[in-house]
Amino acid sequence: MGSIRKTCVTKLRSRPSAPLPSIRRVIQSSSIHHAGSSRYPAFSLMCSRKTQPDNAKRYRGSRFRVLSRRDQPKWSWKMQPDDATTVPWLAFSVAFSRKKLLILLRDGRKLLGILRSFDQFANAVLEGACERVIVGDLYCDISLGLYVIRGENVVLIGELDLEKEELPPHMTRVSETEIKMAQKVEREATDLKGSMLKRMEFLDMD
């Protein structure tokens, strides 16, 4: 029992107590940290200690730094003085994190929520997300919860001006079932229009 404790103690002592000086400098110089915190087990698994030396090598010389100590952020972006204004995603995430946003997706969906994280590929984490369905003059917010959006699906991320009306005054809010019905009717109408046009093609109307 005593010997085991002894070896534990020596192991703890032999562990390097401080990170490399260059890394420490990076931590101090950058203002943005993304912690792979212990609250997200999957994340900490991905950034487990075993994989870190490779990552550190891969990113050496680039502006991404992978950090090695558990009590510190797992990676950071080495800031240049003017980055916070000249890099669009950084400018945006500095100015608009924790604000209410509208995200337009490639399939035409409109998501609203509070931005939690964001990067240069437009990957985004949206808290309290809801989808806004608009059919004619009717609209409905369907709540969805926490959303992680892959960047390739994003068209636009816009900040909502809280002083302005979100929608024109003539639009009315309806329930989820009503909006689903309206959507169905609209889809059937467009389908019908398409098929009629196809059927009447021979008439050569123009």
Binding site: F92, L102, I134, V155, L156, G158, E159, K164, L167
Partner: peptide
């Protein structure tokens, strides 16, 4: 595009 009424600043992905 009524949903864009109150958008004042926006980020647009280059690929679109």
């Amino acid at each position: 595009y009524p949903h864009m009424l109150s958008v004042r600043n926006c980020f647009i992905r280059g690929s679109v």
